[in-house]
């Protein structure tokens, strides 16, 4: 399938000895995610959840037409910063993944990779009908219908497309969920990892990455 860079290959070491390289095993960490326990001190956990809810760093990754609805939030009109919402360019430092609209299979693969590269606890906001039931692309051969079969979703925002206000409301909802200690999507993912993986692999035919992208 043209993924020659991932096929096993034999290279010669500087001394001329052949070495077998298995890229997936050699270059990627093979560990699976584990359930990360909450802090055993309740008050500490509550404090942390409060901080988490007030500091939501959003991954700057627009998947569909809804990506355009995120931009106004940074403008003076909506000014999402006042709620502690910021955009980060790298999944390593982000907490919230806004899936902004329809997801083709190809994009889903990137979404999964980025989602897995985020550090827990992490949250997903599904924006628009397409992420809920496929929306207007419900019968397309190439777009998914239900996001929650692939990654855990914390908040759904229905509409095609929802307005920025709706997105803000969604963030408020997410904050509430986090403060209540229900924002455990990452653990959900780890617990039901096999189910999620099976669903993902069902539609992503050329699976060319390790099972979990650290």
């Amino acid at each position: 399938m043209g993924k020659e860079e991932l096929e096993k290959r034999i290279v010669l070491s500087p001394d001329g000895e052949p070495i077998e390289i298995d890229p997936i095993n050699d270059y990627f960490c093979q560990d699976l995610p584990e359930v990360e326990k909450k802090s055993s001190i309740a008050i500490l956990e509550k404090f942390q959840n409060w901080a988490r809810s007030r500091s939501l760093w959003v991954l700057g990754f627009g998947t569909g037409c809804g990506a355009i609805e995120m931009r106004p939030l940074m403008t003076p009109k909506f000014d999402a910063y006042r709620y502690g919402i910021q955009w980060r360019p790298t999944p390593r430092q982000s907490d919230v993944f806004v899936i902004s609209g329809y997801l083709s299979v190809k994009t889903l693969k990137r979404v999964i990779r980025s989602y897995e590269q985020m550090q827990g606890p992490k949250y997903v906001i599904a924006l628009g009908s397409c992420t809920i039931n496929g929306g207007m692309y419900w019968d397309s051969y190439n777009t998914i219908n239900r996001l929650d079969h692939y990654i855990p979703v914390d908040v759904y925002i229905a509409g095609c497309m929802p307005r920025p206000e709706a997105l803000l409301a969604g963030f408020e909802q997410l904050k509430k969920i986090i403060r209540e200690g229900r924002g455990e999507g990452a653990n959900l993912y780890a617990e039901n990892f096999e189910w999620y993986k099976a669903n993902q692999k069902k539609i992503i035919k050329d699976w060319d990455m390790p099972d979990y992208n650290w």
Partner: peptide, 19 residues
């Protein structure tokens, strides 16, 4: 901290091609 390998880097949602 979990020790990860050399291609476990964020790569604009892609993966590195070769070292």
């Amino acid at each position: 901290a979990r020790k990860i390998k050399q291609f476990n880097i964020v790569y604009a949602a892609e993966r590195p091609f070769r070292p």
